[in-house]
Write a protein that binds this DNA or RNA. Structure first.
Length: 933
DNA sequence: ACGCTCACG
DNA sequence: GACGTACGTGAGCGTA
């Protein structure tokens, strides 16, 4: 060490204080000090982060010197260069500002140097200190993820992202900016920064900037030789904006010459002085942290006094949440005691914690169990060193039971038919456990119970249900893992934080079950729950785990072809427009079409933007304008590429080579499933180009894809429920239903019918299911509104039962607040008695729900029976698309499968409902989905 | 985060 | 007489 107290062998850690504060503020709910309501959340988070940081330091990277650097208010020299610098920063939240001084106080209480200088940004102070330390021969770690600090990296200076716990060295900087740390300022000067309001060069982003800098060496060389740039627009920009770019560089360049009135040596690490620190923490009323710090410092924690809690006591017959403390199980004897309890009780609420949300890839991190209110535990299995330890090794933390031991102890319980397993969205846990060889049965699901009771009223996530029905606010997951880019995995969450969260989930699930279970029968949805919801869990889990084979190479080829086509169209479009613009931006497009070219039909919506939707563009194209026609072509290709050929490739599971969607059972209001990650229920089929994407969905060699779909199922249900004799007879006779409708309406024979007339009747048939209006039909058919209304009137005259059905359904909804499907599914209609524009929508939704819902019920019933019906065949059910089921089957058994599956589907309503119309199922076979459909 | 647009039944 | 309007979904993109 040198005479100034800092030199070779020293390691200076510079903590970006503002980053800690903002991180703490946004990660935590708005906590207040109990005794006086002072907002304190950011201070609490700041203290936790700082304490963990300084108390977990050991090893070769540990600091010998440390400081926390803060910004000190307002104007800096950069505002003299460019008055607009940081001008568009949003105002500070009002509950954050008073916490700033407290974070300084906290830093001093922890006995860490607290640095700020009037008129200088923290970044410049950090830069100055880093330069001084480096020049003195020491090492520097900057604890921040701020990209503006990355220019300092190199030559003994590193950064550490405290959220991701990731070191940022020259390689990471190069990855982010495309250039080494020494050229970062050049790239930033060109690219600008919207957050700090650094102008940069218009139209040039980080990528282009890096490209240019790498080609010309540095910014000055680039600006001097700007004439040589090949792209005309880019060239002009650099010439025109050279001065602005130079100013930008001055704004982003950190200043290493900040005057400082202390020496590096004074930043030497000091132990906290326990009295001062504990005094501060107890004044803030941080109970947990006070206790933790006291323990570590080996002194007695001071009493933390505050006003008595004003939280209402829980219902007298129930203990409060977590009444008996949440146990963290770390030995097998304790687990055995829980298993005995579960066996005695006959049920258990279970929740799994995992590394991610994709059940096909997520690893098991822990399991929580609850048997009765107040009694819940957490079994950590795979937590790793991570949060809090900024130099965490990723090693599995000690004190955890082996996953294999725990699962083999639990397996007999989880598979015991006499023990009920209660979950919230238990399909998730079912799949996780299935991947560990456990087939959980029987299961029940509070999310699905809520769906059976409350569909249409609210969503059915745990937080929502806990708040509505238990009056309990769950610990937000964000508090543990953060959000956005800085999210960590659950495995990185410290066990003592994970345990209360996880155990709480199990307890909440148990309490929800106690709440909902008796309601099923009193609200008369037991049948719906037991026949339409609960049995779907293993059925869908099986389908999702099976996945469908998708040929990535085919998609890649298509992507390339689409990219070429897009580029070509883009060029044409720019030519037609007379200027370059972002074709994907509806805003820019609208301005070109309706302002610049003054085309008619420009309609501005509530945001003031012109609508450029397909039907608007189609109208314009029909008037003979080329530009809108080309845009439509471009949009189609862009959609196919981004949403399908590109995105689908990324969903191919590397282990299985297949795509595993996830079906949400309780997502749609009507009983339909919804498919996510990826959505396989909206793969293109209507256009020839789009349909080719289905060619990438293939059967494995020696197999075939088989698709079976219900023909006109919703119209058949309408014929049955509305009891429309003419429609029912037509379905019984198996005649063309749309032609029949047209014939009845327009008094023309079916034979030799004008296709146009049939098309109109078809539109009306579909419209009726949706609660038709003259306006809607006129838009759909592109006919005058009066004409559309006349059609509808005629339709209702020919089929008067439809109006009766609609009126009755709406009256039902108004009277009861819900409608039911044929199979007893309940769909609530909370908006039905509203007035105003929303009322129409609620009416139509109520009319549609029993029809769409019954169709959903029927295919669910078919799916539930399918497993047993095709068990003897080498076949698997893979996909459901509302009225279609897709199977994969050994080639030789394809016909047999079709016969068996068709039988199940056509009889799916029975015996619960005897439909007065037949259900008809069409089938197709192929090597891919395009052929099979 | 939100609106627009568009893919499906 | 005016108003806003077909039912149910999910995903990607641009914009703020």
């Amino acid at each position: 060490m040198t005479s100034t107290g800092f030199g070779k062998g020293c390691h200076l850690h510079l903590i970006d204080g503002s980053a800690f504060i903002f991180r703490a503020y946004h990660a935590l709910p708005p906590l207040t000090r109990k005794s006086d309501g002072l907002p304190i959340g950011a201070v609490a988070g700041f203290c936790n982060m700082l304490w963990k940081y300084i108390s977990d330091q050991n090893g070769s990277n540990a600091p010998t010197h440390v400081a926390v650097i803060f910004d000190h208010s307002s104007k800096t020299f950069r505002n003299d260069i460019y008055p607009e610098y940081k001008a568009n920063r949003p105002e500070l939240p009002e509950d954050l500002r008073p916490q700033f001084p407290l974070t300084r106080e906290a830093t001093r209480a922890f006995n860490v140097a607290c640095i700020e200088t009037e008129g200088f940004e923290a970044d410049d102070i950090i830069a100055t200190l880093a330069c001084q330390a480096r020049d003195a021969g020491g090492a520097v770690t900057i604890v921040s993820s701020d990209k503006d600090l990355m220019q300092l990296v190199g030559q003994g200076v590193n950064m550490l992202d405290p959220i991701k716990n990731k070191a940022i060295g020259p390689d990471e900087v190069a990855e982010k900016f495309g250039v080494g740390p020494d050229r970062v300022v050049d790239v930033q000067a060109l690219a600008g920064d919207s957050v700090d309001n650094v102008p940069g060069a218009p139209g040039i982003g980080v990528k282009t900037a890096a490209l240019l800098i790498n080609e010309y060496g540095d910014l000055e060389a680039l600006l001097e030789r700007a004439e040589e740039i090949r792209q005309p627009k880019r060239r002009q920009t650099l010439i025109d904006f050279a001065e602005q770019i130079r100013i930008s560089k001055k704004l982003v360049q950190l200043d290493c010459q900040t005057p400082l009135d202390f020496s590096l040596g004074s930043l030497e690490v000091r132990d906290p002085e326990s009295e001062a620190l504990l005094d501060f923490l107890s004044r803030m009323e941080f109970r947990t942290l006070t206790a933790r710090v006291a323990e570590k410092l080996g002194v007695e924690a001071p009493a933390v006094v505050s006003a008595p809690t004003s939280v209402a006591p829980a219902a007298p017959d129930l203990p409060v949440m977590g009444a008996n403390g949440y146990q963290t199980l770390s030995d097998l004897a304790a687990l055995d005691a829980w298993i005995d309890d579960i066996r005695e009780t006959g049920h258990v609420a279970i929740d799994t914690e995992t590394t991610g949300l994709d059940e096909m890839q997520a690893g098991l991190v822990g399991i929580s169990l609850a048997v009765r209110p107040g009694d819940a535990c957490y079994i950590p299995l795979a937590h790793v060193e991570g949060e809090g330890d900024l130099f965490g090794s990723g090693d599995r933390l000690p004190g955890q039971l082996e996953t294999a031991d725990v699962l083999s102890a639990l397996k007999p319980v989880l598979e015991d038919p006499a023990i009920l397993k209660i979950g919230q969205n238990v399909k998730y846990d079912w799949k996780i456990l299935a991947r560990h060889g456990i087939s959980m049965t029987p299961v029940t699901d509070t999310m699905l119970m809520s769906y059976a009771l409350n569909a249409g009223t609210h969503n059915h996530g745990m937080d929502e249900l806990a708040e509505r029905y238990l009056g309990h606010k769950c610990i937000p997951i964000k508090e543990l893992i953060g959000s956005g880019k800085s999210q960590i995995g659950f495995a990185q969450v410290a066990i003592d934080k994970a345990a209360p969260y996880a155990a709480e989930d199990a307890e909440v699930t148990l309490r929800l079950w106690q709440h909902f279970a008796p309601l099923l029968s009193s609200e008369r949805v037991t049948t719906a729950y037991e026949t339409l919801e609960r049995p779907m869990i293993p059925v869908l889990a099986d389908m999702e785990m099976a996945g469908v084979k998708v040929n990535g190479d085919t998609l890649k080829r298509m992507s390339n072809a689409f990219a070429q086509k897009m580029a070509q169209l883009e060029e044409e479009i720019h030519q037609l427009a007379g200027e370059k613009f972002n074709v994907g931006s509806p805003k820019q497009l609208g301005e070109i079409l309706f302002d610049k070219m003054s085309l008619s039909g420009g309609k501005q919506g509530k945001t003031g933007a012109y609508s450029t939707s397909a039907d608007v563009l189609e109208d314009l194209a029909a008037e003979g304008h080329d530009l809108p026609a080309r845009i439509l072509d471009w949009r189609q290709v862009a959609k196919l590429k981004s949403t399908y050929t590109d995105a689908l490739q990324s969903h191919v599971n590397p282990d299985t080579g297949r795509v595993h969607t996830s079906y949400s059972i309780a997502g749609a209001q009507t009983g339909r499933l919804a498919s996510t990650d990826p959505n396989l229920q909206n793969i293109p089929v209507r256009s020839d180009e789009g349909r080719r994407i289905r060619e990438a969905f293939v059967a494995t060699p020696g197999h075939r894809l088989v698709s079976l779909d219900y023909s006109q199922i919703e119209l058949r249900i309408l014929a049955h429920v509305a009891d429309i004799p003419a429609l029912k007879q037509a379905f019984r006779d198996g005649i063309d239903i749309h032609a029949m409708t047209a014939s009845q309406m327009f008094h023309v024979p079916v034979e030799g019918m004008d296709p146009m007339v049939r098309r109109q009747a078809k539109a009306i048939n579909f419209g009726v299911i949706y609660g038709i209006s003259g306006y809607g039909l006129s838009r759909n058919l592109r006919i005058p509104r009066a004409e559309a209304q006349a059609f509808i009137n005629t339709y209702f005259e020919r089929f008067p039962e439809i109006r009766v059905y609609m009126d009755k359904t709406v009256a039902d909804a108004k009277e009861h607040g819900f409608v039911r499907t044929l199979f007893g599914r309940r769909i609530n209609t909370p908006g039905i008695n509203a007035s105003g524009p929303a009322a129409g929508g609620a009416r139509r939704a109520a009319i549609n729900a029993p029809i769409q819902g019954a169709a959903a019920d029927i295919i669910r019933r078919a799916m539930i029976r399918m497993h047993a019906a095709i068990r003897h065949l080498p076949a698997k059910m893979l996909l459901q698309v509302h009225d279609e089921l897709v199977f994969e089957v050994e080639e030789s058994a394809a016909e047999e499968l079709i016969a068996a599956a068709r039988q199940v589907m056509e009889a799916a309503a029975e015996p619960a409902v005897k439909l007065s119309v037949p259900l008809v199922v069409d089938a197709g076979i192929g090597e891919n989905w395009a052929e099979a459909h």
